[in-house]
Design a protein around this nucleic acid. Structure first.
Lengths: 344, 344
DNA sequence: CTGTTAGCGCATTCAC
DNA sequence: GTGAATGCGCTAACAG
């Protein structure tokens, strides 16, 4: 009975209560909690004890209300966490952020520009110290520095037209080119393409790399075998089936992202299950890796990069900006890709 | 020249500035922003215009500083976002939370109880309205309601010993039992087991379901073919290889989670690549589904449930608690699993 | 080394 | 329908 060192009130204790219990002023509590400069060790101990006893937890929101005080929050807006690619990306950001004592506040845009705008506004309203965004394309006036009120922004994976800020992107063009090259090298000449909308940054660039490789080999993309705009696995599977059933079906497919690659493989699995012979199935290039690619029934070339590392890089750039010159020119880092056969 | 309707100061505008511009008092601005009760429509419009003009964004942190004011934040602590399972889970939480106008603040525990404790404390300090946690096991005194200061907590996927709060879990026992049954039904009698540590909630339950099925068939688990405690894919692959190379190697494997299933399949792929004949490879039960399971070289039985739905459910329970009686008895929901053959 | 004063941005309470 | 005063939890700036 009686208190056992744990206050179980449902209200959070405040500095005042801690101060009272420790027999000091709130200021001394605050100082102690912020490193203990200019507080006698003995007094600090009393404060620590009181904190312990009450289970005091500083109210971070109140702390950051005055301008200039950091909120300890970084806003991260991605298109979709369910995509393992972005899950890994978020994890990379979290790696670095938690190392720097920051917390992640996360939102998903679902590729919707309006939601993105709202999300960013909300993040700003929550006083985030910085923003990391995978832009969804579309208008981007809400990303202009003056709208951001000085909050540093780092774009990841894609850039946004007319927005001059730090960015980490991937070597889309080179990766797509070398991936396509790998197919050409083993003799394929009819290669289909499954990608996202050509208006998106990565969509455009990957398609460009694909075409460059074909052109270099004296070939051209057959429009009947090009499908753009699939955003999820089932759409991708439909598109792939369609391409594979068409006359002069390609002997290989280039999938411009994870979702399209998995969709293509599902389509292939379906065709195999319906008795189509394995030899008639296409080889595949997948931009973005996926688990167990080495166990697929068809040869898979993976154009790989580390999404977690991309997240780390983005966060690192953000903190560099926070620690350094806010007005230094924007930096764009392009991460390399690795092309490999899934079967060693 | 001059302002063009966009203030580009780097400081955030405040209610005061909006009020000044609109020619009203700060109070009127506040009222307008909170629904406009008791403000003349005409005045409201002036305020809206001023907000627009300045690009004013309410400071949510300042707003929630007074006790009782909601912060609009829900804390989500999971073990690892890179695991697509938890990525989907987080997405489900976000689905519901964003629908209710709340933002997610995310942290990863990495199965570390100390990090979990710190994370929870930090979330509380940020005044989250509620917490959703995949507990990492270990001590759990920091999850006791009195430590949480009345912040509702929902556990997901696992429960924590001695913590009487709302939880959404999965039918681990039944799923494992029925999955194992599926192997027994097709004639397997030597079945290996790859799972997480038996001390974890799901580890224990899934192992229990596995053994129950064996016992019901008059069999018992062979300790030489049981490996517990693998937490990532490479550890799982090692364990699987080990089991498959052992004398009297099992003809089937039960993988108690996604990571162990993928690891087992990697091991199988490796053995195949080294020339082991396909017929000697084990069938597999995977608790948790994974993409492209239908394309695997060995038969895979998937014990499936929807992680995103689990996240939705957890969030729904949290909001129900927020809207309802904080003192109502804790509710535990067990989500069903579906057992299916990956090859239709 | 420690305490007092004041104010961050907002909204509740009470006047008018 | 509107405004003035007040205080939320915390910490600079200034006293002592």
């Amino acid at each position: 009975m009686g208190t056992q060192g744990q206050n179980d009130s449902s209200r959070q204790p405040t500095v005042k209560e801690v101060a009272l219990l420790a027999g000091v002023s709130p200021m001394t509590v605050s100082r102690t909690l912020n490193g203990g400069k200019s507080v006698r060790l003995e007094v600090q101990q009393r404060v620590i004890d009181a904190v312990q006893m009450l289970g005091y937890q500083r109210n971070e929101n109140a702390r950051s209300i005055r301008p200039g005080q950091p909120s300890g929050l970084v806003g991260v807006a991605i298109t979709n966490i369910a995509n393992p690619y972005y899950g890994n990306f978020a994890l990379g950001v979290e790696d670095i952020a938690s190392q720097r004592g920051r917390r992640i506040i996360l939102g998903t845009t679902g590729e919707d520009s309006a939601r993105e705008r709202q999300l960013i506004a909300d993040f700003i309203g929550r006083q985030v110290e910085g923003l990391i965004l995978v832009p969804s394309g579309g208008r981007s006036d809400h990303l202009q520095p003056n709208r951001l009120r000085g909050t540093p922004l780092v774009l990841a994976s894609r850039m946004a037209a007319g927005v001059d800020v730090d960015a980490v992107i991937v070597d889309d063009i080179g990766g797509a080119l070398r991936g396509t090259q790998a197919l050409l090298d083993v003799g394929h000449t009819r290669i289909g393409y499954l990608g996202n909308d050509a208006s998106t940054f990565t969509g455009m660039r990957r398609f460009q790399g694909f075409r460059q490789a074909l052109v270099a080999a004296g070939l051209a993309a057959d429009p009947r075998h090009v499908r753009l705009g699939q955003n999820d696995i089932s759409e991708a599977a439909l598109a792939a089936t369609d391409v594979l059933m068409s006359p002069d079906a390609p002997t290989a497919l280039f999938a411009a992202n994870n979702r399209n690659a998995v969709g293509a493989l599902k389509a292939i699995g379906e065709l195999l299950a319906h008795g189509r012979p394995l030899e008639t199935m296409p080889a595949l290039v997948s931009f973005d890796s996926f688990e167990l690619s080495e166990l697929m029934p068809v040869p898979v070339v993976v154009v790989d990069h580390d999404a977690r590392e991309l997240g780390r890089q983005a966060a690192t750039m953000l903190f560099r900006r926070l620690d350094g010159d806010p007005d230094a020119p924007a930096v764009v880092v392009e991460m390399p890709t690795v092309v490999r056969n899934s079967r060693r």
